[in-house]
């Protein structure tokens, strides 16, 4: 058994070396395929970050009646958090904070500054900014709580109705991006698997006569199949090493460029954080496709 395994591995290495053209072609196709899958994973990372960023910017604001005590507003804040488990964050903005933020934002706008001076006092209302966990329906639920609870008499207005369409549209777009990514991913992966399968099929078709001769001299199926499977593993491992290095290099080179478009997102950081997922995807896909293709094609020849 041990002898047989050593022989099978030896045959595989010999065949790999003696068919350099076919080996290089197969590794090339497998590498392209794994890079495609890796690209989809990067795309998923970027899309995920983008979606989270957009969703983080969505909130609804409850403005309190002028003169409401800060303690009352903070009590409402606690009540809201208790009433809805889907609340991600509630931020209290006092009258003074609202004025300071507005003034800082429009410090270069003389007209607005003058208008504020003419009003004379602070025209802003204290408010609570509320964000929920990624579902537009949750914003409607929170708005409803704000407008119907005991503390609703303290609330001057909730800006949900003005933002409703925008919130739903943004969630629809981000959810469509996710669905589009999944569908595109599945199609591309299927095409890639077919291409690799056909390349390996061609490589083994070349050995059809050889397989027949092996059968004729009484070689067991395992003895015939073994070297092709081991070659599939070798193709997978070499392709993985190439892809892993290329992924790291591309992520490093493109990181600064991507950061210009997506501030705060580091492509290389994403690669480093998820390096083990990259290993799993690339190694699993490479060896998986290599071995399964070899198994299917050799099985076909062994049955004839």
């Amino acid at each position: 058994m041990k002898n047989n395994t050593k022989r099978i591995i030896g045959f595989a290495i010999n065949d790999f070396n003696r068919n350099k053209g076919i080996s290089i072609a197969t590794i090339f196709v497998l590498t392209i395929t794994i890079m495609l899958v890796t690209g989809l994973f990067f795309f998923q990372g970027i899309a995920g970050y983008l979606t989270a960023q957009i969703q983080n910017k969505i909130d609804i604001t409850a403005y309190f009646v002028d003169g409401t005590q800060e303690q009352d507003i903070l009590n409402v804040k606690d009540e809201i958090i208790k009433m809805s488990p889907n609340i991600k964050n509630v931020e209290y903005v006092s009258k003074d904070q609202a004025l300071a933020t507005f003034s800082a934002k429009h410090k270069d706008d003389a007209v607005l500054g003058q208008a504020l001076q003419e009003v004379g006092n602070n025209p802003f209302l204290p408010s609570l900014n509320i964000t929920t966990n990624s579902d537009p329906a949750q914003y409607a639920q929170v708005a409803n709580i704000l407008q119907t609870s005991d503390f609703s008499k303290l609330i001057d207005k909730v800006d949900y109705s003005q933002k409703k369409d925008t919130i739903e549209e943004i969630y629809s777009i981000t959810s469509n991006i996710t669905i589009f990514g999944i569908i595109l991913g599945i199609i591309l992966i299927l095409v890639a698997i077919l291409v690799v399968f056909n390349t390996i099929k061609l490589a083994i078709e070349n050995s059809k006569e050889e397989i027949n001769t092996m059968k004729t001299v009484g070689a067991s199926n395992q003895f015939i199949r073994g070297p092709f499977i081991i070659q599939g593993v070798i193709y997978g491992i070499i392709s993985f090493v190439i892809c892993f290095l290329l992924s790291g290099i591309f992520a490093l080179i493109l990181s600064s460029k991507v950061e210009v478009i997506l501030p705060g997102f580091s492509l290389f950081g994403f690669f480093l954080t998820n390096w083990w997922i990259f290993v799993l995807i690339q190694l699993g896909f490479g060896i998986g496709v290599g071995v399964i293709s070899a198994l299917i094609v050799v099985k076909k020849h062994l049955e004839i």
């Binding site: 010999n14 050889e210 001769t213």
Partner: peptide, 12 residues
């Protein structure tokens, strides 16, 4: 077995 087309293993 001996065949007209030899049926040798070409890569060995």
């Amino acid at each position: 077995c001996i065949y007209q087309d030899y049926k040798l293993l070409p890569k060995k």
